[in-house]
């Protein structure tokens, strides 16, 4: 059963990814391929044993909500301590999606930063941009983006910088290249194929010319249909 093999392979890859997603303490920006932590699995796997403890997380993280913590939720003191101890780049406040202290004084620059943040993925989350995420890593990235902008980088330079460090996975809008050609081309392809098919089929069997009613037909129609009914029929069309 080839599909089963495919699926197993797929689950395997998926597990490997989720177990190896880089989860790093705040203030420490990992390079590609480094810093992998495997203890996040408990957040994803289904609980089997019952009654061991009341606090294992049964459901995986929320749509888009990050395993590193609940948005806007109070964090426990140990985490806060870690953040405080390691956050070299940050002001001493708990991490959260765009906190007041991150916001740049220049509104134009800040707006660019927000727009860029929306295009960058929080690496430890499910389908969440760093702009929405409250993971420590996302905060680091947000600060990094703002640092680069302050240093005078263009939007593209900032993206290139982040991609160079974290890999393409970080982009929520994939670049146009060989391996994504099908992704970007597919909608256009479907549209063209569909339109082409329609044009061809319309040419192949041209609609029969619509002839006006013959006098005989007119007479018959008048017999069948009183004038009032004809009017009623028109408005229903």
């Amino acid at each position: 059963m080839p599909s089963a093999v495919f699926f197993k392979h797929f689950i395997f890859r998926w597990k490997r990814w989720r177990d190896s997603a880089p989860l790093c303490p705040a203030g420490h920006l990992p390079r590609m391929g480094g810093d992998f932590l495997s203890s996040v699995t408990s957040l994803f796997s289904e609980p089997v044993a019952i009654g061991e403890s009341g606090n294992h997380s049964q459901s995986p993280p929320l749509r888009g909500r990050c395993p590193a913590g609940q948005r806007g939720a109070p964090r426990d003191s140990i985490k806060l301590g870690t953040v405080l101890a390691f956050a070299l780049l940050l002001a001493p406040t708990p991490a959260q999606a765009v906190t007041p202290d991150e916001i740049l004084p220049d509104p134009a620059l800040e707006q660019r930063a927000r727009a860029l943040s929306a295009e960058l993925r929080c690496m430890v989350c499910q389908n969440q941009s760093i702009d929405d995420s409250n993971a420590d890593l996302a905060k680091d990235l947000r600060v990094l983006v703002r640092e680069r902008l302050k240093a005078g980088d263009s939007n593209q330079q900032v993206l290139d910088f982040v991609v160079a460090r974290y890999g393409e996975f970080v982009l929520l809008k994939p670049q146009f290249e060989t391996k994504t050609i099908l992704l970007w081309g597919f909608p256009v392809l479907i549209l063209l194929i569909g339109a082409g098919f329609l044009v061809v089929s319309a040419r192949r069997k041209p609609a029969a010319p619509i002839l006006p009613l013959s006098d005989e037909e007119r007479r018959k129609l008048a017999e069948i249909m009183p004038p009032a009914m004809e009017d009623e029929d028109k408005q229903k069309v």
Partner: peptide, 19 residues
């Protein structure tokens, strides 16, 4: 696409709201 690409080539990409 991200699922298929990763299963076939091992490359990881993200396709999110901007796409």
């Amino acid at each position: 696409y991200p699922l298929l690409l990763e299963a076939l080539t091992g490359d990881k990409i993200s396709v999110g709201a901007p796409f």
